[in-house]
Nucleic acid binder design. Structure first.
Lengths: 237, 237
DNA sequence: CTTCCGATTTGATCCGAATCAATGACCGCC
DNA sequence: GGCGGTCATTGATTCGGATCAAATCGGAAG
């Protein structure tokens, strides 16, 4: 847990060549600012299952995810877990209303992150309204996702939850990798269950039913969306 | 529905005397800026049950709630409703990731709002990093609330949901009105049910049980927290 | 004061998803 | 190639909360 590798002092990759720049918070910056920001960020690596930060831990850094997938979650004292989101390349990580994190973040597979000291980033963004607005934009987008997820958790059946998850996840993957019929699922069934407010058994049964009904085809580490229209109908209704 | 009363051209109240300033987005502004902002905002009134804006409606304004309570909700095509939050005086309203609202907002009782044209507010905030940071702060706080609510919706029992709601609502009221054992509940049982992902019957039964067990005393339009410690224990576990 | 009507409470029953319990598939590792 | 372990699937049963169905309350209007 929590073994990070710093690959290169300050930041040996010029941000101008960053694969996720157009998706990330950095899209708001011009060349000169990017060059300056490059000195503040460092690349860090975490292995599969590693915890990048724990709930209640002090917030010292912001992160941009460069590669891999992460899960964000909150734990109740008795061990129940709610996954509040999955993180994809380009997503910004670490905004918090307090000086502590109020959720934990794990690497699902190996991940690469661009890490910024919170105070350095705050100093850098202080007089850059474009960057502030961009951070705002990302926070508001996340808020919108959270609101959609509340509807799913509070008012949808197991079948609708799973269908909605597949469609939403496919669309998010498409923004990063381009569209594809194959939907890669790097997270475990337990992760999906904890994201959807279900048990692992219910998730598994629903996948199996969708497979039998020809909506999807289950494959190791992914599913193939055989009938996207039907899946979308289940998700919308 | 949607009949608003504009009380006074531009804004006849000086913002310096605004009762909710310390809670609102305006807390970030100095006297000169406040005076300028006063010209951009106008006070509007809505009656009990009025819809201030509907889901999918174009986003034209931001609002500060001055007085009263509102509900924010999303509807599914078949009529299922999820209330994603209640709004109290000082709360900022209208942030959206798109040009449309992605939820609807109703006045629960009569409400007073301070309305700003979105474009005018954007122009005003453009070169005021302090204000941008304050908007950010409020968005991040709301995001935190949404994340907490996801845990509640996904992983808590009916009893825990109701207890958590009472404690959280009491604490929010306390920030506006100061602490009190009486917890005013201006929203209907149906509203509470749609906020907690339950049915009205389950909410009612849980209230009744808490009353019988001496945790609360049910009163018209409010409850009295007889045993806050026990309620907090139910909410925490 | 009485009537009316929506909001709330209470009761009986049902059902979807959780829980409990094996079994089966897929790894990495000797 | 077999072994142990984790993760996923499948089946049987239970249970919490939903649904269906009446009462009952309480405030507004006359």
């Amino acid at each position: 847990m929590m073994t990070s590798l710093v690959t290169g002092e300050p930041n040996d990759h010029p941000c101008t060549e960053c694969a996720v720049r157009r998706l990330s918070v950095c899209a708001a910056l011009d060349k000169a600012d990017l060059r300056e920001l490059a000195h503040l960020g460092r690349h860090v690596h975490f292995g599969a299952g590693d915890t990048v930060f724990a709930q209640e831990e002090m917030t010292t850094s912001f992160y941009n995810l460069l590669d891999g997938v992460m899960r964000l979650y909150k734990l109740l004292p008795d061990g129940r877990r709610q996954i509040i989101g999955f993180v994809l390349p380009g997503d910004f990580l670490g905004l918090s209303a307090s000086i502590h994190h109020n959720f934990a973040a794990d690497a699902i597979g190996p991940v690469e992150l661009c890490q910024f000291s919170k105070s350095a980033f705050a100093r850098f963004s202080k007089d850059r309204p474009d960057l502030l607005r961009r951070v705002n934009e990302l926070a508001v987008r996340e808020l919108g996702q959270a609101q959609n997820h509340m509807v799913l958790l509070g008012r949808r059946s197991a079948e609708e939850k799973v269908a909605t998850f597949l469609i939403t996840w496919r669309d998010r993957l498409a923004r990063v990798n381009g569209p594809s019929q194959a939907v890669s699922l790097p997270m475990s069934r337990q992760d999906i269950a904890d994201y959807l407010g279900l048990t692992i058994e219910t998730v598994s049964r629903t996948f199996t039913r969708f497979d039998r009904d020809g909506v999807i085809e289950i494959m190791p580490g992914s599913v193939c969306l055989k009938d996207p229209a039907r899946a979308e109908a289940l998700a919308a209704a």
